[in-house]
């Protein structure tokens, strides 16, 4: 019987081992991005801008040219690159603290300018790298190391909704919130990430994919329990779906 390799680590991932905790969804999303870059045959003209946070090493994990931006500034760094080299593909990879707290101004203005870049936004409702503090996307009542009694909206404000905030910006070409919490969702997510990169290739404008993700370590759960918690709680607060799609009719 002849065997063929069916699924294996994509070329656009480097040989470096991920520094993420067991079961963390960062690794799944990294692989999907790399698969999309391989399939679109754009590895040799793509530049990754990593954030500050757990994925600070992302620029090392991709087998691509890359850099790491100051905390929250990845969209500005990517803007500078894209303006200097408009025919390259530039994407940022950012967590919720990076994108939705300290980097709010940069993401809103990059989106509003229709900056022709792609952002992959990992929302796991917590600060991972610094040890489980409240994130701008932490759920109401969620216990974190800085909300030991649970997030109280009177004191801590409400979870910020990035897709809902960006959806009315005219520069946005593609905007979707999804999860990678089952094999079916992973396969679907890849198609969406591909769409986001295609929006950039076709110069339609800014594209962002928000991935609701788990943080088993800081949530204090097993990876399997964390997926269950995500489905039962995060998806309720952050509804899944396509918020903007201007890619239709563009090849």
């Amino acid at each position: 019987m002849i065997k063929e390799m069916f699924l294996k680590k994509p070329k656009s991932l480097s040989e470096k081992e991920f520094t993420y905790c067991p079961g963390c969804h960062h690794g799944i999303v990294h692989r999907l991005i790399a698969e999309v870059i391989d399939e679109l045959n754009i590895r040799e003209k793509t530049i990754v801008v990593a954030p500050v946070g757990c994925s600070v090493f992302a620029y090392e994990f991709f087998y691509l040219d890359g850099t790491v931006a100051p905390h929250g500034r990845a969209p500005a760094v990517a803007t500078g690159m894209k303006r200097a080299l408009p025919d390259r593909i530039v994407f940022t990879y950012q967590g919720d603290g990076d994108l939705a707290a300290i980097g709010t101004a940069e993401i809103i203005h990059a989106a509003n300018r229709g900056e022709n870049i792609t952002t992959i936004f990992i929302n796991n409702a917590i600060y991972g790298m610094t040890g489980g503090q409240m994130a701008p996307t932490s759920l109401i009542g969620m216990k974190t190391t800085t909300t030991p009694y649970g997030r109280d909206p009177k004191k801590d404000g409400y979870p910020i909704h990035v897709c809902e905030t960006l959806q009315n910006m005219k520069g946005v070409a593609y905007l979707e919130r999804l999860t990678v919490s089952s094999p079916q969702e992973v396969i679907k997510a890849k198609k969406s990430i591909r769409k986001a990169f295609e929006a950039q290739i076709n110069q339609i404008g800014f594209s962002l994919i928000e991935v609701l993700s788990t943080c088993p370590t800081n949530w204090g759960m097993t990876p399997v329990e964390a997926i269950k918690w995500l489905k039962e709680n995060m998806v309720k607060e952050f509804p899944l779906g396509v918020f903007v799609d201007k890619t239709k009719g563009v090849n």
Binding site: K3, L7, K8, E17, H25
Partner: peptide, 20 residues
Amino acid sequence: CGFCYQMCPDSAITVYRFKG
């Protein structure tokens, strides 16, 4: 089916299919 590959966060799994 490749489900294991899809869910693996560390790209530690390679899936082979038999032809035919």
